[in-house]
């Protein structure tokens, strides 16, 4: 599945909730709870994304041609959002990740989380994911 296809899939998933904020957030919380636990050894300070009110650890690895992300957070909604980002971006090539438009965030009504003042780290999370992809690309070339 391409990044755009996953984005579309998530958008359709969230459309079911309409303006029901409870359903939407319960879904995010469930996503957060179901995100696979990451190795505690990966939750080191150097994997911590700065600028978040909650702690977000992001671990990126190049497996074959694809970047694989793992993430965790001490806040469950943030973790749910991290889960969505992983679903969209993980296991794609650095180029695909760098070019990803990520319009689904706006479409599923999480745009407010993109505000830099929101301090939940979605902006920093996206930036870090793309930076890591860029680093893998530069190392490979």
């Amino acid at each position: 599945m391409t990044i755009a296809e996953t984005e579309r899939e998530i958008t359709e998933e969230f459309e079911l909730f309409g303006s029901d904020w409870e359903g939407k957030y319960e879904h995010l919380i469930d996503l957060g709870k179901s995100l696979p636990l990451i190795d505690p050894n990966l939750k080191t300070d150097d994997k911590l994304i700065k600028g978040c009110q909650s702690k977000v650890w992001l671990h990126s690895a190049l497996e074959g041609e694809n970047v694989v992300y793992r993430a965790d957070s001490d806040a469950i909604i943030t973790k749910g959002i991290a889960g969505l980002m992983i679903r969209v971006l993980s296991e794609h090539t650095p180029n695909e990740i760098i070019d990803a438009k990520l319009e689904f965030i706006d479409q599923i009504g999480l745009k407010e989380h993109l505000s830099p003042t929101r301090a939940n780290g979605l902006v920093s999370m996206i930036k870090q994911m793309k930076m890591d992809a860029l680093a893998f690309k530069l190392n490979a070339s």
Binding site: S54, I76, I77, T78
Partner: peptide
């Protein structure tokens, strides 16, 4: 986490500070 509580209060129209 305080931020999760704050986010869900905000969805219910309640403005509090977290952090």
């Amino acid at each position: 986490h305080p931020m999760d509580i704050g986010t869900l209060l905000d969805q219910q129209g309640i403005a509090v500070r977290t952090g």
